[in-house]
Computed example of a mutant assay.
Amino acid sequence: MSESEFVLLFSVLACIGGGWGARRSGQPFWKGFLIIVLAAAASELLLLLIASESAILSILIALVTAGVAGGAMKMTGRQISLVILGSIVILIPALVIAEMVDR
């Protein structure tokens, strides 16, 4: 698989994990999915605008954007954290499997 296919696959998996986290917190699936999409898009857009490739800055922007987007959707901090953790929990096994397949 090419690098762009991996990015697309992991982005979709992160969004699905965010939706799963939203369902676990008692919110609709689409809210978690949308929070992860907005966080990723805002992170990439802001990094492009400031011409930076910092991974730490990207993560920080994504977390702040996820918090703002979740707050705008009337979600509590606990619910937003479950959305973020849901995306992480889905991505960790996917990254491990991708590393094993890539070798």
Rank of each mutant, 00 (worst) to 15 (best):
Q27D: 04
S11E: 01
G21L: 04
V101C: 14
E5K: 13
L8M: 12
P93D: 06
G86P: 05
W30D: 11
S87F: 09
E5L: 11
R23V: 11
G70L: 07
A41N: 06
G32Q: 05
K31R: 08
S43M: 07
E99A: 15
A94Q: 10
A66Y: 00
L13V: 12
V101A: 15
R24P: 03
M1T: 13
I97P: 03
A66E: 02
L57S: 12
E3T: 11
V37E: 07
V7P: 04
L85I: 14
L38H: 11
R78K: 15
A69V: 14
T65E: 01
L45R: 12
A51L: 15
L46E: 04
R103Y: 15
C15H: 04
G21M: 03
R24F: 10
E53V: 13
A62Q: 01
A14I: 00
L34F: 11
D102T: 13
Q79E: 14
G67N: 07
S58T: 14
A40E: 03
E53D: 10
G77K: 12
I16P: 01
G19Q: 02
V64P: 00
R23S: 10
A41G: 03
F33D: 03
S52C: 10
G86R: 01
A55V: 09
L91K: 03
A51P: 08
V12H: 10
L13K: 05
I59D: 07
A41L: 06
M73E: 02
V64A: 05
E44I: 10
E3P: 13
L45S: 04
S2L: 12
L63S: 01
I84N: 00
V101E: 09
V89T: 13
L34D: 05
L63A: 04
A98K: 03
V37R: 05
G17D: 00
I90P: 03
V7T: 13
S2T: 12
F10T: 11
R24C: 12
V68N: 03
G86Q: 00
I16Y: 05
V96S: 09
L48I: 13
A69F: 05
S43P: 08
I88C: 10
I50H: 06
A39Y: 00
